[in-house]
Design a binder for these strands. Sequence first.
DNA 1: CAGCGGCGATACTCTGCCGGTATCGAGGCT
DNA 2: AGCCTCGATACCGGCAGAGTATCGCCGCTG
Lengths: 281, 281
Amino acid sequence: MVVETRELRYFVAVAEELHFGRAAQRLGIAQPPLSRAISQLERRLGGPLLERNSRGATLTGAGRLLLGEARAALDAVDAAERRTRRATGGAPRLVLASKAGASVELLAKILDAYAAEPGSVEVEVILCGIGEQERLLRDGRADVALLHRPFDATTGLDSEDLLAEGQAAVLPAGHPWSQRPHLQMSDLPDLPDVPPLRWPRSDGSYPDGPGPELRDGAQLHQLVALGRGYTVLPESARAEQHPGVATVPILDAPQVTTVIAWPPHSRSLPLATLIRTATSV
Amino acid sequence: MVVETRELRYFVAVAEELHFGRAAQRLGIAQPPLSRAISQLERRLGGPLLERNSRGATLTGAGRLLLGEARAALDAVDAAERRTRRATGGAPRLVLASKAGASVELLAKILDAYAAEPGSVEVEVILCGIGEQERLLRDGRADVALLHRPFDATTGLDSEDLLAEGQAAVLPAGHPWSQRPHLQMSDLPDLPDVPPLRWPRSDGSYPDGPGPELRDGAQLHQLVALGRGYTVLPESARAEQHPGVATVPILDAPQVTTVIAWPPHSRSLPLATLIRTATSV
DNA sequence: CAGCGGCGATACTCTGCCGGTATCGAGGCT
DNA sequence: AGCCTCGATACCGGCAGAGTATCGCCGCTG
């Protein structure tokens, strides 16, 4: 009477591969039971989810809808399993996700302050790639994350603001503008000699443009020091001095807010303490 | 290897009943298979979820955590099933949830404007009780909802503000203050003769106090007209004139914002059109 | 145009899991 | 001490889900 996660996993595999054979291989089962499971799901849900043809399959409208809903549902089931397993395995602990190379001193302050709280538990820090925090929270690999508005999406998460700051341009040290005391946003398109570096969007794709593509903060400083591009970062990134890299504040850049975010329904005591501690740092 | 929704349903039943026998009855199965399913789940998740004793069972810490996570996961699975079934069943349609008796004219404007859009689909309106919109969105019975900040929680939902308005006191027509042109928040505790009506909180419980308890807007006007209490509502509620009821603006009441909200990952074309239409009304 | 190859559906069989009944063992209450 | 309540265990039967073999359809190609 009710949809099982097995059926959803099967459907997601087929919807992603658009090929029953490959999907079955990925799932580690034979193709016939997969075909049967999908048609049973279609019967139960009242209509076709896939159009079959001799080269594979394509999604119907209902199939596209189900793909999104099923991914969300499977993430929620995974989260339940992972978080519970974490809670049963000996000492409870919290997992915090943060972008690699961001907010080092803020994070350190939060962790220190939390460790001093009564009843605090061990906090494991996952340093992840750009925009991955949301996914880690959704599938339960993390309990709480540090995000940066407006770059990271907080949709579907609870959050509290921690820190708002301006932004600064990160330029090669020898760049003619690197000695200026400050810049304006309107200066940036005219910045001579170096193109803007390109960060991935939340879906992993890159905007068009001339500059090199980036994945993390380590690459960033290398590329800037080599004079291959520039970028704009929150001012707290200035704290880490890198050779060959200069930072210049941008007076009218939009404020970047570091927020602490967590899945909306989770309200464990250690998590609440961590959030309270973080907001009062 | 992976948790199935059946196991989560079983666990939630036991966790809510704290009694294997009653939970089994509720699930329509016998008690022994339920016991086995739970202990298998405990083995898989790495530790006990329930403490058994001769009078029933109590939740462990991990069990409490899993109860919350499992409810969220089951809601997500239900949502996937319901929304997909809706999409396969003939003409696609959107389901909008709104509190019974709220924002009638705003809702009418939105629906009219959306119906005039090209490519609009049928919109079914569910008029639900106070604070039920969130649950309807979560388990897929609704696709989109109208909420009122700060009364309704928007945590875990995407939303756009539609309309901010002041609030007005709703008094019995014969009340001595009903002729005053306006009130202040500080007047309310001194309001003679009638107690404040009590609305349910988001968890369904009622605050303590002398006034009668309310469930919906129909009761409200009856009770006020009978002189049994007063309440405070957004000003747009003044538009509907009820016999025996007077409304007086409260100058310094906090603004109430009507927002349109939807589950964060759903991005179907009809939904996007409805949201765009609503925000531009 | 016939033959071949790829893909999903179907037919059939088997096995492992889920659910049912009967019964046991542990605590608590009188 | 004896009964009662409640969960666990033992055992069994049926069915659902997985595997193998095969079919039917379609497109490509020589």
